[in-house]
């Protein structure tokens, strides 16, 4: 599993590729937690994955908690419908910020 990293207007954008499941969650965790060490504005973009299991949701939740404790911000952007349904089912749509695109998350970061 690969995580692409780009930066735009001070926001670090992480794009995991392919699948986030039990066997790849550790790579995802290391990538996300590593990014938090150097930036407190993080966007995770989901448009290049087609599958996420609870192992991946756990990492997203940990990132949300960590950034909140550091007065940072986490946005989840560009989720395919199937991925969104898993987040919604888990109640994560109520505790994390989900936006259709990076553009639409900008006012949250500013």
């Amino acid at each position: 599993m690969e995580i692409k990293t780009t930066t735009e207007n001070g926001i670090t954008i992480l794009t995991p590729v392919a699948r986030v499941d039990t066997s790849t969650a550790k790579v995802f965790e290391d990538g996300v937690m590593g990014a938090i060490n150097s930036s407190n504005k993080i966007a995770i973009c989901f448009n290049e994955i087609d599958y996420i299991s609870s192992a991946g949701l756990r990492v997203v939740l940990m990132a949300g908690k960590k950034l909140t404790s550091l007065n940072g911000k986490l946005a989840l952007i560009d989720m395919p419908e199937k991925i969104f349904s898993v987040f919604k089912m888990s109640g994560f749509d109520k505790i994390l910020k989900i936006y259709p695109s990076l553009e639409e998350s900008k006012s949250f970061f500013n």
């Binding site: 299991s53 609870s54 192992a55 949701l57 756990r58 939740l61 940990m62 949300g64 908690k65 909140t68 898993v86 089912m89 888990s90 109640g91 109520k94 505790i95 994390l96």
Partner: peptide
């Protein structure tokens, strides 16, 4: 089941897998 109504700070990490399997 995990408390899906709890806040971000209170939300426990884990326990979600079985819950998702049940939901689906």
């Amino acid at each position: 089941d995990p408390d899906v109504e709890s806040s971000l700070e209170e939300r426990k990490v884990g326990g979600l897998g079985i819950f998702i399997a049940k939901q689906l």
